[in-house]
Write a protein that binds this DNA or RNA. Structure first.
Length: 427
RNA sequence: GGGGAGGUACCCAAGUGGCCAAAGGGGGCAGACUGUAAAUCUGCUGGCGAACGCCUUCAGAGGUUCAAAUCCUCUCCUCCCCA
């Protein structure tokens, strides 16, 4: 290993994953000398992580693949305070119980990304409530607070952005807590590096500074870009809302669809960010996109890779089967068993056998494809609705017996890519 | 404490007694085109109803009027200027 570089950093740089870092050569040397531990914090503000957290998770994975030790910090303590970064206004405080419960669930989720059973560099998971929960104010102010300059704290982007509109002392203190976390991890687990989104840079440097002052230690930091799509929209939101990593909140099929819909302009960048494919392969996909964009080869690969990473082989298989069936256009030739298999994990609503003859408008409302009957009628008259791949015309259409496929399935479709399976239950 | 400007649908914003379910833009949904793309063009965008229509809605509560987003009273909230 060269003293000037390190494969982990080279890989990240080639993938354009580095925004800020402590001096690159020093960091490379640090990583080259020995097995190191690096952490990323996740605040349990919801009961699941989402696509916005994905980049951090993959970063930890990349680190572990380079034989270093990833530490996942669940912010059970800081989550009670609220990070002001990137926020226009004060956060609503979550209840202790909620945060505790969320923290528990996050622990289970991250095991998809890092390996907790990998010998010497097995991943480690810690919850900062462990130390923050019992911090006493006076000692904290004397020992930790003393090392912070209000002038510096005020100058940080995350704080100065809020000075005009207002920020509570609680949120203002967030950076102290995050810095304290870093120092605590350094002491407890010999953690010498913190990573995070570029909005975390200020908090990370605060931690590095604190470690230097209190322990005369050297620590490093690195931030990744905050991902936005080329059209300016934030990453991680789909038409229907946040794309969660929890399969119960966002199905593998929806996850797959989210990625396959990536615009050409973003797909190569996202392959670099979110997949572990070799760069040469990604470059080749870039050429395919260039010359034959209609194949959407890069999108397909991206969707496959990420879905597999997040939901495993089973999740990917479900997503691909459902996608193939729904978008093939013709489901009428399939057997009950095939349909059963294809739609096992698709969004499904059960209908009763005697719902046959019900106006289709009502069915659309019931399964959620139409917000109201008026909307439903509008969709029907503009030709937006298809049943089993066949366009339905007329607002007065009814759900008829010949629309029912083997096994009681009816494939309802709104527009080009919104599907819902209705399943008639036998009496 | 004094003076002023405001709060309208998902967002911005027009509307100052009836023609207002409320202009325009954005966003969203759909159609055409296409590659489950982008751009563009078109339609729709409070609810119920097949429809005449009915119901709910213009910060909140009352009131005036045949009729109120529009006028009056009180309340709450936001912003600006002066002290």
């Amino acid at each position: 290993m060269s003293a000037r570089s390190h494969p982990f950093l080279e890989d990240l740089a080639a993938r354009e994953l580095i925004v800020d870092s402590t001096p690159r050569e020093e960091l490379a040397a640090h990583l080259g000398e020995a097995r190191r531990s690096a952490y990323i914090g996740f605040d349990p503000t919801a009961d699941s992580l989402h696509v916005g957290n994905l980049l951090g998770l993959t970063l930890l994975r990349r680190l572990q693949l380079r034989d270093h030790r990833p530490i996942v910090l669940v912010g059970g303590g800081t989550g009670l305070i609220g990070d002001p970064s990137g926020r226009a206004g004060e956060r609503a405080l979550n209840e202790l119980e909620t945060v505790r419960a969320n923290a528990e669930r996050l622990k289970r989720q991250v095991s998809r990304f890092v390996d907790f059973d990998r010998g010497a560099n097995a991943a480690l998971l810690v919850d900062n409530y462990e130390w923050l929960g019992s911090v006493s104010l006076i000692p904290f102010l004397r020992d930790v607070g003393k090392h912070f300059s209000i002038n510096v704290m005020l100058a940080k982007e995350s704080v100065s952005a809020r000075l005009a509109t207002g920020i509570s002392y609680t949120e203002f203190s967030y950076q102290l807590l995050q810095a304290y976390d870093f120092r605590e991890l350094a002491r407890r687990h010999d953690c010498t590096m913190q990573m995070g989104g570029s909005d975390q840079w200020g908090n990370i440097t605060a931690g590095i500074e604190l470690i230097r002052r209190m322990d005369a230690g050297a620590a490093h930091g690195l931030t990744h870009p905050l991902v936005a799509r080329s059209d300016g929209t934030k990453m991680g939101k789909s038409e229907t809302g946040t794309v969660w990593l929890d399969a119960d909140k966002t199905s593998p099929y929806e996850m797959y669809q989210f990625w396959i819909n990536t615009p050409d302009a973003d797909v190569i960048r996202f392959l670099k960010f979110y997949t572990f494919l070799p760069l040469a392969e990604i470059v080749a996909l870039g050429e395919t996109t260039e010359h034959a964009p209609e194949k959407r080869e890069a999108q397909r690969v991206l969707a496959r890779e990420v879905t597999q990473l997040v939901h495993g082989d089973d999740g990917l298989r479900d997503a691909e089967t459902i996608t193939a069936s729904l978008f093939a256009g013709d489901v009428t030739g399939l057997s009950a068993a095939q349909l059963e298999q294809a739609f096992a994990a698709a969004p499904t609503t059960a209908l009763a056998a005697d719902d046959l003859g019900t106006p289709l408008v009502d069915v659309l409302v019931r399964v959620g494809l139409a917000e109201s009957k008026r909307r439903g009628r509008e969709l029907l008259t503009t030709g937006a609705i298809q049943v089993n791949g066949r366009k339905v015309s007329g607002a007065d259409a009814v759900l008829s017996g010949d629309a029912v496929l083997p096994g009681g399935f009816v494939v309802l479709q709104r527009g080009k890519k919104t599907f819902h399976i209705a399943r008639l239950e036998k009496k």
